[in-house]
Nucleic acid binder design. Structure first.
Length: 575
RNA sequence: CGGGGCGUAGCGCAGCCUGGUAGCGCACUUGCUUCGGGAGCAAGGGGUCGUUGGUUCAAAUCCAAUCGCCCCGACCA
């Protein structure tokens, strides 16, 4: 590709609205432009990256027996009403009416459509298993689009769905997807973790997420380096380190004007881990006192998975149920259901006395009050792994893929059935699997860049080689550049030829910004000795070679590319 | 949806507090010089100051409403 004839609008400065590294670099390198909040145009280089990523995804999906289809973006409401998601999903779904006033929506995911298709095309156990996938645009009216292409309202997703006759079949399909996904992210040059995740509204029996470490991520995962435990913090269990418990006996102590944990701790000169945070909540079954250790955070999702929806109590409710203000609440003597975090099973603590200005010291949970135990705390770095006890590490990550065991949730509601050998009607057992190619591209940039710009993994770089003649007014240089351009193309090396009549500094800066794996510089310095220069973007290594050796040297600097070419035509792994 | 910030030339910004009719850098056009890390000189083109309404002799500037974008939080199939 000749730069002079291409749309590659690089920017010297960061766009004002871009904060995340990948957002800044994608805009500056001329990969994307923003049309509106969470809506992006992919320019030629950005499109090439997306094409590369999608090609890898398609290869790996086909390898596990996936068949590509394309489902519609526009869906009739009826399908979504049948599964209950028409009402279960809120404002995140784009809804509209057609000219006949029929309710329609824009597809944010395709379980409904795929199940509709399965319901009408699958009849017998002989038709199973099946793996169907598409690479298609999803629309979600996100409450807050952010971080460039990391969270957008319109985005391309590879989504696939497996159809099996039973759980065992699903397990196998699920495992194949898990392995395929690992290969995809590896080939795209990403560092990533596979973690257990919360199946959430997708319903079903199990789920994993593929998480690429990055500061720009929105999720956090807990990792154990010793036993390999890894989970989204939404789900992760941990054992907070117990403090040294003083040998307190039970007594009431005055704590005037000390309401918050910090104030109480400052007043009594103790660490927060020796206190208990008591929160009065209102559930649909009435008031409930929830307890976590003073240095811990209540994990609202964990609690609501145990007690259902809840809200904090109002001041008058607190006064009427416990007879004290929020700063002096405690479980002792409370005539309320109490739920306490597991980490409180041991120790002696300071708790509110349910009497303004007083606390109780030396309270032993399970002894002085009887709670129901549950995992309610937020996992933090340094907590003990609940499996092996080693220190957990909490890392910020970008979710680049997820896999769900759906089970029969959708096949039952949409009547996607098959007949087994005995002639009995059975619901199809389904799985659902998603990957965001734009997130892969952005995560790759987040993980591979420096002050000067992007450092693309070879496999998803928009081009392999950046051909840079230093001076386009030097006939000899141009002659050689043109010859090498033709030769490299003939050898199927993807070349971006910077044939612009720009000053060298501009071209070098842009080359670093675009971050193609190999730069081929043709300049007067080396040319005097009949040489040209090859430089690896990643390592900064430079090589002087005669023009005749450019192709072989360039290829040796692109091992991934070479291996990828050799691998083409691999036999598919059948299911 | 709650909190905060910002909308002035293609991009990045100043001007606003203290009203007097718009400026800087980059980019762009032309010419000359320059050519291995974002060149220099000279001459140009380009802006209903997000929008609407109000105050005023006069509004980019003050007031109100509204739209848009970003960040934090809530939410997130």
């Amino acid at each position: 590709m000749r730069w002079s004839r291409s749309l590659i609008p690089t920017l010297k400065e960061d766009p004002a609205e871009a904060e995340a590294v990948s957002h800044r670099l994608m805009a500056r390198a001329g990969l994307v432009r923003q049309l509106a909040a969470g809506i992006y145009v992919y320019l030629p280089l950005g499109q090439r990256v997306m094409d590369k990523v999608c090609a890898i995804i398609r290869e790996e999906m086909n390898r596990i027996g996936g068949q590509e289809i394309t489902m519609p973006v526009l869906h009739p409401a009826e399908l979504w009403q049948q599964t209950g998601r028409w009402t279960a999903i809120g404002e995140e779904m784009f809804r509209l009416k057609d000219r006949g006033s029929r309710d329609m929506c824009l597809g944010m995911t395709h379980e409904e459509v795929i199940t509709w298709l399965a319901a009408r095309e699958i009849r017998s156990y002989r038709d199973l298993p099946q793996t169907w996938y598409q690479v298609q645009t999803k629309l979600r009216d996100e409450a807050r689009p952010k971080s460039g292409v990391l969270r957008t309202r319109e985005f391309v997703m590879k989504d696939s769905y497996t159809l099996d006759r039973d759980e065992a079949g699903l397990d196998k399909s699920y495992q194949l997807h898990k392995e395929a996904y690992c290969r995809i992210f590896e080939r795209c040059g990403l560092a990533f973790h596979v973690v257990e995740s919360d199946p959430g509204m997708m319903g079903g029996a199990g789920a994993h997420e593929f998480m690429a470490p990055s500061q720009a991520g929105e999720d956090e995962i807990a990792l154990c380096d010793r036993c390999g435990y890894s989970a989204n913090v939404e789900l992760a269990s941990s054992r907070p380190r117990p403090p040294e418990f003083p040998d307190w006996s039970l007594e009431e102590i005055a704590t005037p004007n000390a309401g918050t944990i910090e104030e109480v701790c400052a007043l009594l000169n103790v660490e927060p881990a020796l206190t208990i945070k008591s929160l009065l909540l209102v559930t649909k079954d009435g008031p409930l006192l929830a307890l976590v250790r003073g240095d811990q955070q209540l994990h609202e999702k964990k609690l609501s998975s145990v007690v259902g929806e809840f809200r904090p109590a109002h001041r008058d409710e607190i006064l009427s149920h416990l007879g004290a203000e929020a700063g002096s609440l405690g479980p002792v003597g409370a005539r309320l259901p109490i739920i306490a975090d597991e980490s409180l099973r041991v120790g002696r603590y300071i708790v509110g006395a349910n009497k303004d200005g007083f606390h109780l010291r030396g309270v032993v949970p399970g002894d002085h009050f009887q709670p129901r135990w549950a995992d309610l705390h937020h996992t933090r770095s340094g907590d003990g792994c609940f499996r092996c006890g080693a220190d957990l590490r909490v890392e910020r990550v970008i979710e680049v893929g997820n896999i769900f065991k759906l089970g029969t949730k959708y096949s039952v509601s949409l009547r996607a059935m098959y007949l087994n050998e005995a002639g009995e009607e059975r619901p199809i057992v389904m799985g659902s699997y998603g990957i965001g190619p734009a997130r892969i591209a952005a995560a790759a940039i987040e993980q591979h860049h420096d002050e000067q710009g992007i450092i693309w993994p070879e496999t998803i770089a928009p081009h392999q080689l950046h051909l840079l003649p230093v001076n386009m007014r030097d006939e000899k240089m141009v002659e050689l550049a043109e010859a090498l351009y033709a030769q490299l193309q003939a050898e199927r090396v993807e070349v971006l030829y910077d044939d612009r009549d720009e000053r060298p500094g501009v071209k070098f800066k842009d080359a670093d910004l675009l971050g193609l794996p190999v730069r081929l510089t043709i300049g007067s310095r080396a040319l005097k000795e009949g040489m040209v220069e090859l430089k690896a973007r990643k390592t900064g290594q430079e090589f002087r070679v005669p023009p005749s050796e450019v192709v072989s040297k360039a290829k040796s600097l692109l091992p991934q590319w070479k291996r990828h070419c050799e691998e083409r035509g691999d036999e598919a792994i059948s299911q």
